[in-house]
Design a protein around this nucleic acid. Sequence first.
DNA 1: TTGTCAGGCAAGTGCTCACTTGCCTATGGT
DNA 2: ACCATAGGCAAGTGAGCACTTGCCTGACAA
Lengths: 91, 91
Amino acid sequence: MGDVFKALADPTRRAILDELQERNGQTLFELCTRLISQHGSTSSRQAVSQHLGVLEDAGLVRTRREGRYKFHDLDTTPLRTITDRWQLPTG
Amino acid sequence: MGDVFKALADPTRRAILDELQERNGQTLFELCTRLISQHGSTSSRQAVSQHLGVLEDAGLVRTRREGRYKFHDLDTTPLRTITDRWQLPTG
DNA sequence: TTGTCAGGCAAGTGCTCACTTGCCTATGGT
DNA sequence: ACCATAGGCAAGTGAGCACTTGCCTGACAA
C-alpha cells in the first residue's frame, strides 16, 4: 500500500475525496464533471484518472468494475494511521 | 497558516514530529543528532531547519526563543482538520 | 461490423520541492 | 576583544510530480 500522506498532499485529490464523500460510487466521468461544476476544478479526464490511481494505491479509494463502468468508493480507514501516530486527544 | 497536508507528505518531517512527541521542546541541534541516532536520518542541519519552517507554517510546531536557543514544541491540533474533513468513525 | 463511449497506457514537459552551498547575525564564554 | 556555538538567509541543483498529448483496449448499441 502506497503513501497515504503523499496522496493527501494534493488539493485536487482532496477534492476528489470530498466529492466521493458527498456521493459515493462515482465513475471517472461523473467525478470529472462534478469536480468542475461543484469544486471549480479544471482537471482533465486523464489528470483525474491519475489522481484516482494514487488514491487507490494509498487505499483511500476502492474500485469495482461493471461492464465498461468503473465505480469508485471512498475508504477512510487509512486515515487512522495519521491519528494513531500522533495520538490526538480523542475528538 | 500553511498547508498541513503538504507538511505531512515528507517522511523526514514525520520523523521530526515523532521525535518531538518522544521529547518535546528540542532545539535544532538536538533534533539533528537524535534524528540521526534514533531515526536513521541523514539530513543536514539546514535541511532540518527548513523542515521545521514548513512544520511551523503548518501550525504543527510552535517555537519559543531563549537567548541563543530556540525550542520546538509539537502541536497536533491542526491534525483535526484531517479527521474532521472526512468524518472518521470515532476511534 | 461500424461507431461511440468509458477507461487505460506511456512518453514528454514544466513546475515544485528537498537539499546543498556559502555566507551572515547574534548570543554566550574566556 | 576573541572565538565557538546556535541559528538564519538566499541562490543554485537535481529529482519527483502534476499535467498534457496521443494512441490503444474493451464494452455496448445500431
